[in-house]
């Protein structure tokens, strides 16, 4: 779509905040201000949404494969192609399945007393830290 979606969304959000919100009061002003902020968040993540999800899903698959190879639960085959469908909703659905599997693996390695468990645990925390950075929004308080 032309003009560029990110630029349009940013501009619309700024105009709503600058031109519309000051003319409103109370509940309506708050609703429009939040709507403008949300359009700003969409602009921030639109361009990188698919690539972030592919990166995250690829990393999660590697960790789950390492966990399975180390004896921490079976590796579930249907998760094996992070590029099969690049639409954001499909990547998000895969991401949800992988993160659910990660929770199981994380709990298993926490309870295990071995160097490989600690290694996998370190990989998991590194990925959770990285995924939190990928998902960060500039409007966040922290």
């Amino acid at each position: 779509m032309i003009p560029n979606i990110v630029e349009v969304a940013k501009d619309v959000a700024e105009r709503m905040s600058r031109d519309v919100v000051p003319r409103l009061t109370g509940f309506e002003a708050n609703n429009v201000a939040m709507s403008a902020a949300m359009i700003g968040m969409m602009a921030e993540h639109w361009d990188k949404a698919a690539s972030d999800l592919v990166a995250e899903n690829t990393s999660l698959l590697q960790i789950l494969a390492l966990g399975a190879a180390s004896g921490f639960g079976p590796y579930d085959g249907p998760f094996d192609n992070p590029l099969a469908d690049l639409r954001v909703h499909a990547l998000s659905a895969l991401n949800a399945r992988l993160r659910q599997a990660l929770i199981t693996l994380h709990a298993a390695v926490e309870d295990a007393d071995s160097p490989v468990a600690r290694q996998i645990e370190a990989h998991i925390w590194a990925e959770l830290r990285a995924s939190t950075e990928r998902r960060k929004i500039s409007a966040g308080n922290f």
């Binding site: 708050n30 939040m34 949300m38 830290r129 939190t132 960060k136 929004i137 966040g140 922290f142």
Partner: peptide, 27 residues
């Protein structure tokens, strides 16, 4: 469908995850 319900979820969930990482010494 009040706007604040969608907004709060978008705005705060990542911040809350970051706060957990900080408190657990993982950030």
């Amino acid at each position: 469908r009040d706007v604040i319900y969608a907004y709060a979820s978008w705005w705060l969930r990542n911040t809350q995850d970051r706060a957990i990482l900080e408190l657990m010494g993982k950030l």
